[in-house]
Write a protein that binds this DNA or RNA. Structure first.
Length: 475
DNA sequence: TCCACTAACACGTTTGAATTGT
DNA sequence: AACAATTCAAACGTGTTAGTGG
């Protein structure tokens, strides 16, 4: 194993790769996905995007918004988003740049965000940009709100998954396609490190508008010094938002993450990466990330391999290894020829794969689900019946239809569900049992129990499988 | 002392129920 | 009575900053 010293080797995060002549979108088969607000993303990417993660959960900014086309209008699809590590390292902000600070820590429970409109017909997804505004990131490994859990000072990038399925129960049997956009990579932080990023956020995020006025800041600063008694009392007011659990309320907003209305569709996004592995591939355990990446120089393309190497594609015997040249070379700004990326992609058939082992847990419907189906389903061996792959998903107001009348595993609605959440099989993260029921509107998969492998395991599966969309927990 | 992180803050934005208008 | 438009208070989403803990 390399020492941190070796790893550092004068390393610093290089300027983001500049996309030159890259396609503004990419499509698997007939499906085409483009990133909305690509320019904004790029402006952040050029500086080094940082996403704040807090205990209660924090939204992303820019937030993920995509355009879709090529879907079968009448076929139903489910959209999912998850975050995967960029590499196997931990970073630190030193002076004015990012530096390696060692190997990445074991990743916390994996969760996947389900777009609240899911499932919806292709026509619905295509008629306007699809935003994931309500997606929240947290650094709380014990989070019970279903937010995506990340480590601070680690780098990640979102993956967008499109699954053709009538409901979450058929996801496992459905064809899914995954897309990623280089410019959406970011470093998770608990406090902004690069002031340029802070400024960009303030200038572009409406919610940060209050900080554009310097006078306001100074004023606040002044009042802060004198612990105003009134303020303190105000804090005690029941109506005051609870900073810790306060995030739950937002989940109650029914208008969340819907499709953006009347928004102009921009298609000038940068190069689009596509991943052909199966996010649902078998899970071995997080360590592989470190192992795989740990050997390589961060400056090289290797780090990328953590998520770009060949993936298990259940149902496809012709799976081929695939590597993202560009994406992996963040250090080399020049390597921007997007064509290479696409060119390197293997056979198109590889883009599709079966989605196995999917268990869903629509939160806001957890109660109903619990009623209908009762407690968690603890399935038999993997690769068996649908129920076998009970997973934990935090769903943002997923349509009740998703649950349909199928039995569900409810992480929040049912106590036992939570047990799975923490993962009896997860030695590292063992969230405390829920003390109360929540209406969870996020659908997230908890991968804390990654020891399980499904039977679709392909011969040359790689460590990629450690980043599945769904966990095979519950047993 | 340094670093990562947290909680409390102030304040603009957004939400959504109540109210008013057609 | 039904629906649309408007109001407005509460909740939410922000970056800041002092304080905490290792």
């Amino acid at each position: 194993m390399q020492s941190i010293r070796d790893l550092k080797h004068n390393f610093s995060i290089p300027p983001p790769t500049t996309v030159a002549g890259a396609p503004d979108s990419y499509h698997h088969g007939n499906i085409r996905m483009t990133l909305e607000d690509a320019e904004l993303w790029k402006s952040f990417h050029e500086i080094g995007t940082e996403m704040i993660i807090t205990k209660p959960g924090r939204r992303m900014f820019p937030h993920c918004k995509i355009n879709l086309s090529g879907l079968v209008p009448y076929a139903k699809y489910i959209l999912l988003v998850d975050m995967v590590p960029e590499d196997g390292f931990r970073y630190k902000w030193n002076k004015d740049k990012w530096e390696l600070a060692g190997k990445a820590e074991p990743h916390p429970p994996y969760r996947t965000y389900l777009h609240p409109d899911s499932p919806a017909p292709g026509s619905h997804w295509m008629k306007q940009p699809v935003s994931f505004l309500k997606l929240k990131l947290t650094n709380n490994a014990l989070d019970q709100h279903g937010h995506i859990i990340l480590h601070s000072m680690h780098r990640y990038h979102p993956r967008f998954h499109i699954v053709q399925a009538d409901d979450l129960y058929s996801v496992r049997w459905s064809v899914f396609q995954t897309f990623t956009f280089p410019e959406t990579s970011f470093t998770a932080v608990t406090a902004y490190q690069n002031t340029k990023i802070t400024k960009l956020k303030i200038d572009n995020n409406p919610f940060a508008k209050g900080f554009r006025d310097e006078g306001t800041n100074s004023k606040r600063r002044a009042s802060r010094g004198t612990a105003d008694p009134e303020r303190l009392s105000k804090k005690l007011n029941p109506t005051t938002k609870d900073s810790d659990q306060g995030s739950s309320p937002d989940l109650q907003h029914s208008s969340c993450d819907g499709l953006d209305e009347g928004r102009a569709v921009r298609k000038d996004s940068g190069e689009v990466k596509e991943e052909r592995y199966s996010p649902w591939g078998c899970v071995s355990d997080r360590e592989s990330g470190g192992n795989v990446m740990g050997q390589d120089s961060p400056a090289g393309s290797e780090p990328r391999d953590v998520y770009s190497t060949e993936q298990l594609v259940p149902g496809h015997s012709t799976y081929q290894p695939y590597r993202f040249h560009e994406y992996g070379k963040s250090p080399s700004p020049s390597s921007s020829s997007a064509p290479g990326v696409l060119g390197s992609s293997a056979s198109r058939s590889g883009f599709e794969s079966r989605v196995p082992d999917v268990a869903t847990v629509p939160e806001h419907e957890s109660k109903a689900a619990a009623h209908e189906s009762g407690p968690a389903l603890c399935p038999p061996p993997p690769a068996a019946a649908p129920q076998d792959y009970a997973g934990v998903l935090n769903m943002a107001q997923a349509k009740p239809a998703i649950l349909g009348h199928h039995p569900l595993y409810t992480p929040y609605g049912a106590e036992q569900a939570l047990g799975q959440w923490g993962g009896a099989s997860s030695a590292q993260y063992t969230p405390a049992p829920p003390t109360h029921h929540h209406h969870h509107h996020h659908l997230a998969t908890d991968y804390s129990t990654q020891a399980v492998h499904h039977s679709y395991h392909h011969g040359n599966v790689t460590d990629w499988s450690q980043y599945p969309l769904f966990s095979y927990s519950c047993w």
